[in-house]
Amino acid sequence: MQIFVKTLTGKTITLEVEPSDTIENVKAKIQDKEGIPPDQQRLIFAGKQLEDGRTLSDYNIQKESTSHLVLR
Results as ranks from 00 to 15, higher is better:
G35I: 02
I3Y: 02
P19L: 10
E34L: 15
D32R: 12
D39I: 09
N25G: 08
S67G: 15
I3C: 02
S20F: 11
V5S: 00
L43M: 03
K27C: 01
Q41P: 01
T14D: 04
K27Q: 02
V17A: 05
L69Q: 02
K11P: 04
T66W: 07
I23L: 04
P38S: 13
K29T: 03
D32H: 11
Q2S: 10
Q41G: 03
G47H: 05
G53T: 10
V70E: 14
L56R: 00
R42N: 13
T22N: 04
Q2D: 06
T7W: 10
Q31E: 09
S65L: 08
S65E: 07
P38G: 07
L43E: 00
E24D: 08
Q40C: 14
Q31W: 15
V17R: 00
K33S: 11
E24P: 02
T14H: 07
V70I: 14
I36R: 02
L50P: 01
L15A: 01
F4G: 04
P37F: 05
H68D: 09
R42S: 10
M1C: 05
T12I: 15
D52W: 03
E64C: 10
V26Y: 01
P19E: 08
L71T: 08
L8S: 14
L15T: 01
A28S: 12
I36Q: 02
F45I: 05
F4K: 10
P38W: 11
K33N: 05
S65D: 09
E24C: 09
V70L: 13
D32N: 10
L69K: 01
T55W: 03
V5I: 14
D52M: 05
H68A: 07
G53D: 11
Q41E: 01
D32Q: 14
E51Y: 06
L50T: 03
S57G: 10
D58Y: 14
T12L: 14
E24G: 12
R54K: 13
T9M: 11
D52R: 04
I23F: 02
S67C: 15
G35A: 05
K48E: 12
L71D: 06
G47E: 05
L69G: 02
P37N: 07
E51F: 06
G10W: 04
G35N: 07
P37V: 05
K48N: 09
K63I: 08
E18F: 14
N25F: 12
E34G: 04
G35W: 03
T7A: 05
A28K: 14
K48Y: 09
E16N: 10
T66R: 08
R54I: 05
D39L: 09
K6A: 07
P38V: 15
I23P: 01
N60H: 09
V17D: 00
T22K: 07
R42T: 15
L69T: 02
T55M: 09
R42D: 09
Q2K: 13
S67I: 15
K27E: 00
I61K: 01
T9K: 11
P19S: 08
I13F: 09
N60L: 06
V17Y: 03
S67D: 10
K6D: 09
